[in-house]
């Protein structure tokens, strides 16, 4: 029984990681109906930025964290301006391919600049361990869980309560109509890319003690975050969290109870099953078809 609970808890911790990345997908999807395949790579780049600020320049952890988030927000805006804006309004698959290209590019260039070794950041959470009865939970994992919950709550409020959030939802529903209503659609898209890159950076820095920072971390985790986002319903912020946690728990249970090999495939099997049975996901909007 204790094994089961320990697996459950570590699954939840892992799931929060996926949820945190899935949040970035959901943000951009919610505002522009584009899936950003470079999301994982933005996270990777955020981690490298933080490593540069903290590990190389020797800044304080929190200052370095903040600087990395700001720098990556600017970078997200730049990427949007250069790659996404010129093709905004063209078919979805075109934009998806462009973000795949961006991801390729960032991954290789980061590998060239920072090398291919695993890098590490010293964080205030690196050492401690929380013991609850027989359960063991490392502080770095707790920090991920806490940050995911906090970010989810903030972003949920942002999208549902603020004017800017409403403008973002409007521009995803119908770009032209939003434009007629006086919403500066281009600026909205730029802002959402900045926010999404900032969230990705937060994920990258918090994950640094767990997964380390290397140039492929974004690809590996990004592909795992897809099932999370789909399971939760692609446009839903709480859905990203719930989907992430479910995928994390499924993965760690499959790793413990099923033969070797199932652990890596289980999330995708779940993904395919969800797409077949309930494509709109758990929290997805159910919209009647119009002709």
């Amino acid at each position: 029984m204790l094994d089961f609970v320990q697996q459950l808890v570590s699954g939840i911790a892992l799931g929060c990681v996926y949820g945190l990345i899935a949040l970035g997908f959901v943000l951009i999807y919610k505002a522009t109906e584009v899936v950003n395949f470079a999301q994982g790579d933005l996270m990777m780049l955020g981690g490298f930025f933080a490593f540069t600020f903290i590990g190389i320049l020797g800044l304080n952890y929190w200052i370095g964290f903040f600087a990395a988030v700001v720098a990556m927000a600017a970078f997200g805006m730049l990427a949007e301006r250069l790659v996404v804006r010129p093709i905004l309004g063209y078919p979805q698959f075109t934009i998806v391919m462009a973000t795949i290209g961006l991801g390729f590019f960032l991954r290789s260039v980061a590998g060239m600049i920072w090398g291919t070794d695993d890098l590490k950041i010293d964080t205030p959470f690196s050492q401690g361990v929380l013991r609850l009865g027989g359960l063991v939970l490392a502080h770095d994992k707790l920090s991920v869980i806490a940050a995911t919950l906090l970010l989810c709550l903030l972003l949920y409020l942002f999208f549902n309560k603020t004017t800017l959030g409403t403008a973002m939802r409007a521009s995803s529903e119908n770009m032209l109509a939003a434009y007629y209503m006086g919403i500066p659609v281009k600026r909205v898209v730029a802002i959402v890319w900045a926010i999404s890159a900032a969230v990705a950076t937060a994920a990258g820095v918090l994950l640094a003690p767990i997964t380390f920072i290397h140039s492929n971390v974004g690809l590996v985790l990004g592909l795992k975050a897809f099932p999370a986002a789909v399971l939760g319903g692609f446009g839903s912020i709480p859905g990203a969290l719930v989907g992430g946690v479910l995928i994390g728990v499924i993965e760690s249970m499959a790793g413990f109870y099923l033969p070797q090999g199932w652990k890596d495939v289980a999330p995708y099997i779940v993904l395919l099953a969800v797409l077949l049975l309930k494509p709109e996901g758990i929290f997805g909007l159910h919209v009647r078809k119009k002709v």
Binding site: V83, F104, F105, R107, S108, M112
Partner: peptide, 25 residues
């Protein structure tokens, strides 16, 4: 050093994808 860097192929692929989508659709 740049020309024989490990990730150069990936970088070229990424660049090609973006360049063709943006400039030669």
């Amino acid at each position: 050093a740049v020309a024989s860097a490990n990730g150069l192929k990936g970088a070229i692929y990424g660049f090609l994808i973006m360049a063709f989508i943006l400039f030669e659709p």
